[in-house]
Design a protein around this nucleic acid. Structure first.
Length: 420
DNA sequence: TCTGGGGTCCTAGGACCC
DNA sequence: TCTGGGGTCCTAGGACCC
């Protein structure tokens, strides 16, 4: 049996942990640049605020209904996520952290136990230790556990815990789950399946396997097995190193000057290099892209990108920034209103397996030492203390974050002081 | 004025090889 | 009329996830 533990309205719940005064008020969290809604508390959902709603459309409405609006604070969410995962890890030796707010727990060791009672205990412990409410679904496969979790959230029976074990319980879950709510069925597949009269997960299970394979590829076939109770999705306790790493942002305002965009690209390139070093990998291709804003139909549009092939794979910030700058030179054209820039590093290999070049002119040992020092200093004093010249100091490309909450758990000056 | 960001997996189709 | 047949590798694009 597998449990899926999912934090309820995670970002919104995080904002509440250190601000109990908003416990019963509607809360929403915005995307980068305060663009649109990406998380809502139950109260905000009940008010009818939609996921992805653009801020400018709901601003007045929020004011009227006392909706508490926050810019996203990923430092805070990441820190609270770590605490939740640590707490969960105390319950089972086998845990797969699936995303910032979800984890699969292997319950094989607890089959003799009352799984409902055990799940309730997990839920209560997380609430007590971290202050984040979670829902728990337990079932024989990951896909069924996902569905059970949805059920737990929706019905609110048994403190947000739902266990599905017997054939009859599975059948009930399948019948009550609409096809579009099955994990792995998105809008496109939903539309297609509905046109064939497949309305629920139970209908989907009945479909001919060959047909599923032809129309939904092997991914669909795997889903069908999972729904039948046959585990078909691998268990990944330590996530494999990433094959592609991307850092991109929309600018806080439209930009036309190459110098401003170059600073943004340099910062993104630096972030990519740091992510590579964290997973002990190097990349051999640096891709740079810039975008105009396609919502502005009155503007000329331009979406160029370029791949820079490196002679030797690297994770040195200065090298990756250098190639990214050259890439930007190749694609930048004056006369456009740019909205976004990004850097992607690909062709990633483990640090230990880098193929060295015969005519390599870079002092790699030196680069490595510099980057180690750099990472250490920035880990101690914050990400921006030591900087590369190309990163610059322009504020123009920076995110709009007008409603940012404090970093209660990670920045010393933001930690609460308890008076006594 | 204003619409997120970062990933994965799979397949089709082109280039190229013998 | 009719134009080999199999491979492999790579890339772009679609679909999905949170």
């Amino acid at each position: 049996m597998i449990a899926l533990v999912d934090c309820n309205n995670f970002y919104a719940s995080c904002e509440r942990v250190f601000k109990p005064s908003i416990k019963r008020l509607p809360v929403v969290v915005l995307s980068n640049n305060d663009g649109c809604v990406i998380a809502r508390s139950d109260e905000a959902k009940e008010l009818g605020i939609k996921m992805g709603a653009p801020v400018f459309q709901i601003e007045k409405f929020c004011e009227k209904h006392q909706v508490q609006v926050f810019s996203s604070n990923y430092t805070l969410y990441g820190s609270l996520s770590n605490r939740v995962m640590k707490t969960l890890a105390g319950f089972t030796p086998n845990i797969e952290v699936y995303s910032i707010d979800e984890a699969f727990l292997d319950m094989a060791n607890f089959l003799g136990k009352d799984l409902v009672a055990y799940s309730v205990q997990i839920k209560k412990t997380v609430q007590q230790h971290v202050g984040i409410p979670v829902s728990i679904g337990v079932a024989p496969t990951k896909t069924l556990a996902k569905m059970a979790n949805r059920f737990a959230k929706k019905t609110k029976k048994q403190f947000g815990v739902h266990v599905v074990q017997t054939a009859a319980e599975i059948e009930e879950l399948l019948t009550k789950t609409e096809i579009g709510n099955v994990w792995g069925i998105g809008a496109q597949h939903q539309k297609k399946l509905l046109s064939y009269g497949v309305k629920t997960a139970a209908d989907f299970v009945q479909l001919n396997e060959e047909w599923v394979r032809k129309n939904l590829t092997v991914v669909g076939q795997r889903m069908q097995h999972e729904l039948k109770g046959i585990p078909s999705i691998a268990w990944d306790e330590s996530p494999p190193p990433k094959k592609v790493i991307c850092t991109s942002r929309s600018f806080g305002q439209l930009l036309t000057q190459k110098e401003d965009i170059a600073q943004a690209v340099a910062n993104h390139a630096n972030k990519c290099a740091a992510k590579l070093r964290r997973q002990k990998s190097c990349a051999a291709i640096v891709q740079v892209f810039i975008h105009t804003n396609n919502f502005r139909t009155q503007d000329k549009q331009y979406y160029p990108s370029v791949n820079m092939q490196l002679p030797v794979a690297t994770n040195s910030s200065s090298e990756i920034i250098g190639y990214a700058m050259k890439g930007l030179d190749l694609i930048f054209k004056a006369g456009y209103n740019y909205k976004k820039a990004g850097v992607i590093v690909l062709d990633i290999v483990p640090e230990s397996q880098v193929q060295f070049g015969l005519f390599d002119t870079v002092d790699r040992a030196k680069h490595k030492k510099i980057m180690e020092q750099y990472d250490q200093i920035n880990a101690l004093y914050g990400d921006d203390l030591v900087r590369f010249a190309a990163q610059g100091f322009s504020k123009r490309w920076r995110l709009k974050q007008e409603r940012l909450s404090p970093c209660y758990t990670t920045r010393l000056s933001d930690v609460y002081v308890v008076k006594h």
